[in-house]
Design a protein around this nucleic acid. Structure first.
Lengths: 206, 206
DNA sequence: GGCGAGGGCTAACACCATTAGCCACCCAGG
DNA sequence: CCTGGGTGGCTAATGGTGTTAGCCCTCGCC
């Protein structure tokens, strides 16, 4: 039984409409397209009317961040409830981020308004990293690797033609604990053909 | 003898003034404070006059990104010319980012305008990651870890009270194993497989 | 002496978040 | 019935942003 997500505090129904509209706009137009005007238009109203329901744009973004953390946490806990390897966790993290890139970027870029988030949400969402490593610092390091990979991938920062499957596998191998160091239970080679083909291995960045 | 940085293409002198002013503003006021008006004011002129020298704000930012990549690359190459361990490289990366947080964030957040950067700069700056790991995918993974750590640290994303020294050490330890643990090595790794093998020791103290 | 180019200026536009103030509806209390 | 008050919309306006258009001064050069 995995721990339940902390419940989101109840809000007025119209606030939910606003947040839902903001999320649609974000998914469709990206962070730059998320303006008070576009959110209002999505609802068929004018921008100033939004301020009857939310304090400001930051308040909407906080709600979106909370939703993102909840979804990511859900995905990570689900991944561990079945498999349980580092590679499984990383795969779930990557899948979640790539499925909702704009939301992921919004939720993880820039400072986090911890005060205004549901208490415990952040810890709960990150708990699987601790579960899989068994040590808090290693968990943070693994999380950093995962976030770095995802954000660089989303931003197109890796040189074109990079075999990212293999890069993920290398990271998973590096963090696979002391138990089965030689043979990580890595991914069953969905990309191994491509891996062999692109053996060139381009430059690295930054 | 480490490879020299690719030379920046020559620019009109006034353009250099604009970029230098932008850099001062960025260091002082952060990315949000970097506006065409503030840069102009730093030079004692009005914002529209900037357009006599640069195409738009993005062009200024590209110059800043190029400068940041050059400086980071310089620091990383210098770190390897002396020590050579993964931990040394990571320490240099972290020091550089923390010394100029606003510049680092600008240079690494969001999509990279590769076309407009001096050719070869990006590869050159990232080369030390390859040197120290001896394998391109592992190099990308290590870079991702470093970037994730740095950006999360700069954004205050780690829970308060985290012992980041130790988290960095955990990451360094994870990547100091034998290269190509995940798969049989696809490529024999430039001239410096020795660098990766040399530092197999225990956890690195802060 | 003209003359073009470099480099400044003001005015203006479109978009952004946000505030102030006004008005229409709906529903409960008298 | 009718009279509030709360809810939720509106327009107008403010000060910020990047950017364009058009004007003007001042050099060095032929």
């Amino acid at each position: 039984m995995r721990p339940p997500a902390p419940p989101a505090p109840p809000r007025s129904s119209r606030v939910d409409d606003v947040v839902a509209a903001a999320r649609r706009v974000l998914d469709r137009d990206g962070p730059a397209g998320l303006t008070m005007r576009s959110v209002a238009e999505e609802l068929g109203i004018k921008a100033p009317s939004l301020y009857k329901h939310v304090a400001d744009k930051a308040a909407i973004e906080v709600e979106l961040v909370a939703a993102a953390l909840a979804e990511i946490g859900e995905a990570l806990h689900a991944a561990l409830s079945e498999g349980g390897t580092v590679a499984d966790l990383l795969a779930a993290y990557r899948r979640e981020a790539r499925c909702r890139p704009n939301l992921y970027r919004l939720a993880t870029a820039g400072p986090l308004p911890r005060e205004q988030l549901p208490p415990g949400l952040e810890d709960w969402a990150g708990a699987p990293f601790f579960t899989v490593t068994g040590e808090p610092h290693r968990a943070q390091a693994l999380w950093s690797f995962a976030h770095g990979m995802v954000i660089l991938e989303l931003d197109g920062r890796f040189p074109p033609g990079s075999d990212l499957e293999r890069t993920w596998a290398e990271g998973a191998a590096a963090f696979e604990g002391e138990a089965g160091a030689a043979h990580p239970a890595g991914r069953p080679a969905g990309g191994s053909a491509a891996a062999a083909a692109s053996a060139g291995g381009g430059p690295v960045g930054p």
